[in-house]
């Protein structure tokens, strides 16, 4: 399939800043769950358009601002 430029957002966690507060998992359970010590497990770094609003809210709500939402233009083949 043709390779097309797909713009989107990707989620990144600063693991040193992260204190395991767990707010992100409350606000974005679609992408984030917590391990047994309360630290986030990122299921997928790619944020779909439907989840973008939730992701933004999760980023803003992090008590230590350990999450970033980066704009990416990625080369993605037709099949996902």
């Amino acid at each position: 399939m043709a390779v097309i430029g797909v713009s989107g957002h990707s989620l990144r966690i600063d693991r040193i800043e992260c204190g395991g507060h767990g707010v992100c998992a409350e606000l974005l359970p679609e992408l984030i769950e917590l391990d047994e010590w309360g630290y986030p497990i990122l299921r997928d770094t790619h944020v779909t358009a439907e989840l973008l609003g939730h992701a933004r809210r999760a980023v803003a709500a992090c008590p230590v601002l350990a999450m970033r939402l980066d704009r990416v233009v990625r080369q993605k083949s037709g099949r996902t």
């Binding site: 693991r15 040193i16 992260c18 395991g20 391990d35 047994e36 010590w37 309360g38 630290y39 986030p40």
Partner: peptide
């Protein structure tokens, strides 16, 4: 001992 996985996991 900076990140969760190394502090606990």
């Amino acid at each position: 001992r900076q990140c969760g996985p190394c502090r606990f996991g």
